[in-house]
Amino acid sequence: MSTAEGILSEIRELTSELISSGLCVDQNFPAMRTGAGGVISIDISGEEERDLSVTLKNIPYSESYAVLVSQRSFNLKMIDGGLIQMMYQFRNRELINHRLAFFPSPDLLEYQNNPDIYETDEMYGDIVSRNIVTSPIRFDFDRDNFVENDHPMSHLTIGQYKNCRIPVSGPLSPFLFLNFILRAFYNTPFRKYCSDIKRREYTFSSSITKSEMLNTHIQACSA
């Protein structure tokens, strides 16, 4: 079972490996904090005031994305402007919450200004097609607000839909989440430039119920 210290170390190592690969162009290393009730949080370093709820407000996605950038509310900023967040909370050494989110850039201004550069660079091959529709995704784990079938303990939200909670078999480690994002959305540069990213073993237990398994769900690696 992963500990707060182990998750902190894993995110730090993955951040360094993504920087070395060239896919990450800006970053905030993770920080560990202890709050009320002894809850240990692994979140984004820095002293800036951040409003993570901005992505849930009824405003255009481009505006909420701009706020995330201005507040530096990301662990990783990818080469195309995509933002990655990885946050965990533990209580009594037990995982109680995680927020693992990917916010693709709503537009590629540099691509619009210099399309020839991007179209000849395979680093961008997966992200500059004109038929791509940007859609944020978020893997949440929430032990305290679990309601079977209505609010699965571990779930995937696509596109900020309020009631989109696709059951997931269990919480994701930083490596599994980042590996999913890279393979799904940065496949070409991932295969060519990310060979130095070390595979980590999955260390969280399954949390999905038998009833939830009867519905469409996502089977993640589980211990």
Rank of each mutant, 00 (worst) to 15 (best):
G38D: 14
G38S: 13
S41C: 13
I44N: 08
I44G: 08
S45P: 03
G46C: 04
G46S: 06
E47F: 06
E47M: 06
E48S: 11
E49W: 09
E49Y: 08
D51S: 01
L52K: 01
L52G: 00
S53L: 07
V54M: 05
V54L: 06
T55M: 01
T55V: 03
L56P: 14
L56H: 05
L56M: 07
K57R: 11
I59Q: 10
P60D: 08
P60I: 10
Y61I: 00
S62C: 06
S62W: 12
E63I: 08
S64N: 06
A66Y: 10
A66C: 08
A66D: 09
V67H: 01
V67E: 06
V67M: 00
L68S: 06
V69A: 00
S70V: 00
S70P: 05
Q71C: 04
S73C: 05
S73Q: 02
F74G: 03
F74H: 06
N75R: 05
N75G: 07
K77I: 12
K77H: 14
M78S: 07
L83D: 07
L83P: 13
Q85W: 04
Q85L: 07
Y88V: 06
Y88L: 09
Y88P: 12
Y88A: 03
R91N: 13
R91G: 15
N92G: 14
N92A: 13
R93S: 15
E94G: 15
N97L: 12
N97K: 03
L100I: 01
L100A: 02
A101H: 05
A101D: 07
F102M: 09
F102T: 08
F103K: 01
F103Y: 05
S105V: 02
P106M: 02
P106V: 02
L108S: 11
L108F: 10
L108R: 10
L109F: 12
